[in-house]
Design a binder for these strands. Structure first.
Lengths: 242, 242
DNA sequence: GAGCAGACCATTGGATCCAATAACAACAAG
DNA sequence: CTTGTTGTTATTGGATCCAATGGTCTGCTC
């Protein structure tokens, strides 16, 4: 575990996510292998995985290309995440959650409450919120008892900006971000309320709308088009899907 | 294209789907390679892809195991397909469909009408219905304009029995299957009606329920538990996701 | 007799080599 | 001048070899 193969895979994912690899440009095995200082073999393996994840697409009959995803493709991925997490919430509500899951969800809510009750956000609050947000979503998906949801979500989670684990934050306007994340956190509250009450349809609707919190709310709460100054992505290490 | 690598991948998928490989049992590279008469390399590649598709899972620290999916996992996958195809139908209805898509959908409906109007099903009707069913679903997903849906569906489509391309038919009771497929076809009618009328929510609801036609209706329409005699799977060649 | 340690074997991952194929370019012919 | 054909090169896929790691079995010691 964590041999050169995994390292190459993680490196390529990161390079694609942060744009070091020009989108749409062709990418070959040998230059990539030399650039990363490994043999062609782990690169070959990584290319297959990355193709399955949708980050690379075949470029003609020879080689791969970094997939360039436009605005509406991103919106589509967010929409997909919405229906999947909505399904997870509904099934969790319908089947009922265990005491452990209930405890984790309530703890996430409480930790978020403590974050937001002081009325502003500082730098390390962003990291904390990111962590609890991730934990909340993962717990809900697990609580659905439907592993197919996690499997389907795994694809989206590899697309940059479309996953829960990628939070686009505007560090220049932390008061705006406070409102945005606070709203998202209130949606968490509503979702937990619905799930614990066994209200499947309500839980589904809330989580479906909540998917927009990642991306669309960023515009909704004031960050206009082209206002990319100071926008940062908190991207955490790839949590394993299993 | 279509070299030994693709052949190995297709063979392994088929062997997993039809149960030639015992579920849950460990599967190693070397015996598999010898059994298929190829080197270890294409097997290694295929294992990675199959792991990404969810057909294989890691068996401890060494090797892979064929994933055994129980009844409720299958039901979960069907549910996932429901929400995804529901989303596709809704987005197709909301954005409107092109003339070409409209023509294809109507042609699928008409061909189905001709199949069912004679009041019974014969053997080659099953293949015809399978083809038009597949075409219908693919067209609808494409019409959504959301490639993330197809990407998310690709995972489910590899799980045996959960995809549109796997129809479980009971050849012993073709009159029952007539009622079942006819019902599914009427759902197609309703879905197209809703999509063409721009009724997104209605289209979504119909397609969501329609996902159950693959599996759950088989029991609903009379095939009881354990009544597996004469049940066959029409599984067609792996249509490429892109 | 049981537990621990060491050694051997099985199996996987990486590297290098070889073959096959596709693309590009150059040259010749119409 | 344009187009077709052929040759060369670049790149990918497959095979074989080598190293590293984990598991198991056996023997020794307490």
């Amino acid at each position: 575990m964590s041999g050169p193969g995994q390292r190459v895979l993680a490196l390529l994912r990161q390079m694609i996510a942060e744009g070091s690899l020009a989108a749409g440009e062709r990418i070959a095995e040998i230059p990539t292998a030399e650039r990363l200082g490994v043999s062609r073999m782990p690169v070959r393996m990584a290319f297959r995985v990355l193709e399955q994840e949708g980050l690379l697409i075949r470029h003609g009959a020879r080689g791969y290309a970094v997939r360039q995803l436009g605005e509406e493709e991103l919106a589509g991925a967010v929409e997909v995440r919405g229906v999947l997490e909505g399904l997870a919430a509904r099934q969790a509500a319908e089947r009922g959650v265990s005491a452990e899951v209930r405890a984790v969800l309530l703890e996430c809510l409480e930790r978020g409450d403590r974050l937001f009750e002081k009325g502003y956000l500082c730098e390390e609050d962003l990291a904390s919120y990111h962590d609890l947000n991730l934990r909340f979503h993962q717990t809900l998906v697990e609580a659905s008892g439907n592993p197919a949801i996690a499997a389907a979500l795994a694809r989206n989670d590899h697309l940059p900006f479309a996953s829960v684990s990628a939070l686009v934050v505007d560090r220049e306007h932390l008061e705006r971000e406070y409102r945005r994340f606070n709203f998202a956190h209130l949606q968490h509250h509503a979702a937990v309320d619905a799930v614990l009450a066994g209200q499947g349809a309500r839980a589904e609707g809330i989580m479906r709308e909540h998917a927009n919190a990642t991306l669309r709310y960023a515009r909704l709460f004031g960050t206009e088009e082209g206002d990319s100054v100071g926008r940062t992505v908190i991207q955490r290490g790839s949590q394993k899907p299993g």
